[in-house]
Simulated assay, not measured.
Amino acid sequence: MNETINIIKQHRSIRQYLDKDISEELVDEILKSAQAMPNSINGQQTSVIVVRDKEKKKKLSEVTGNQVYVDKAPVFLVFVMDFYKTNIGAEKYDRKQIIHESVEGTAAGVFDAGIAMGAAIIAAESLGLSVVPIGGIRRSPEEVIEILELPEFTYPVCGLVLGYAENNSKQKPRLPFETFKHVDKYHKETLKADIDSYDEYMEKYLKEIGREQEGNWSNLTSSLYQTVYYPKVKETMEKQGFKNDK
């Protein structure tokens, strides 16, 4: 396969970084790659906040759950669902924008941000950088909104740490390919057996890396998915204008 595919397939999240800066030129190349990605109706409802300020990075590391690598790495990117921009276009023509009040708008906005982040990850890794996505950006969203001075109709979707790896982590095994690829219909016939097999494999892997307390994939995901583990998302989305009632 080609080098791009090899880079993608070697992806791993890195949580230990060197004290080494990243040039603005590299950051811009990564963001231009992200901006080039497809998006719903060419609405371009994604923005990225580049955080280098040490005080802001420290605050963000705390509100995301004391994730110290947010603070330690030189650059932290925050991917923002951004219907503030599109609303400016609506006001130009004296139209009332309502897409941000709908579930469809949220789905499109979040998905577009995800596509952009995927491209940013591939671009960064192709340039010799390492990354770790930070879903914890939604842990205390009101504080993130305040720190980044986000206007109405915007919402922080996910963060991405950028830096030079201090050392490589092991690559986390994925579920069997057959659970990911479904041909012509959703195939549920072999799912339980495939998941059982994966759980056995993950128990060995987690023991090897000293995280046996997680048990396996089914144990970890089901323990987390018993609750909404970022419960402030709904109320803060509503405050930002995302009613999700249409």
Rank of each mutant, 00 (worst) to 15 (best):
L148T: 04
Q35S: 08
T190R: 14
Y93I: 10
K72N: 06
N6Y: 08
Y201F: 11
T179K: 11
E55T: 10
L31R: 01
G43L: 15
E25F: 14
I134N: 01
Y225E: 07
R95W: 08
V144W: 02
N66Q: 12
G135W: 09
D196C: 03
Q97A: 05
Y230K: 05
K172Q: 10
T154P: 06
M1A: 11
F111H: 09
A119F: 10
D184P: 00
S126T: 11
E235H: 04
S218R: 14
D53A: 04
V51D: 05
G109L: 10
K246A: 03
V48I: 15
K56P: 01
V144P: 04
D199K: 11
K58Q: 09
V233H: 11
D82A: 03
V228Q: 10
V161Q: 05
G118S: 06
D184N: 10
D71Q: 14
P156E: 02
V233W: 11
Q171P: 07
R15E: 05
P74Q: 05
D194Q: 15
D199E: 13
P156R: 09
R12S: 07
I209H: 06
A73T: 04
N6W: 03
G215M: 13
G114K: 05
I22T: 05
K58Y: 03
G114Q: 08
M1E: 13
G159N: 01
K170M: 12
S126P: 07
Y69E: 06
K188G: 00
K243C: 00
K32T: 05
S102Q: 13
V80C: 07
V68Q: 13
Q45P: 00
T236E: 15
L18M: 14
K239L: 08
N42I: 03
Y201H: 11
S140T: 08
K188N: 04
D199Y: 09
L31G: 01
G105P: 00
S33A: 15
S222G: 04
I88T: 08
A108Q: 14
R15T: 03
R52K: 15
E149T: 03
G43A: 12
S169D: 06
I145S: 01
K246M: 12
K185E: 05
K246P: 01
N168K: 14
T4S: 06
E62I: 15
E212H: 08
A73E: 02
K85N: 05
K192E: 06
H187D: 04
F177N: 12
S13Q: 02
D94W: 07
A73I: 05
V233Q: 10
V78L: 12
S47K: 06
Q67K: 03
V103F: 14
K234L: 12
E238P: 03
A123E: 04
G89L: 14
E146G: 07
V132D: 00
K234R: 13
D71A: 09
P156V: 02
S223G: 05
Y84W: 12
N6D: 10
Q16M: 07
I14C: 04
S13I: 03
Y198H: 09
A119K: 12
L160S: 01
K54I: 08
G89A: 14
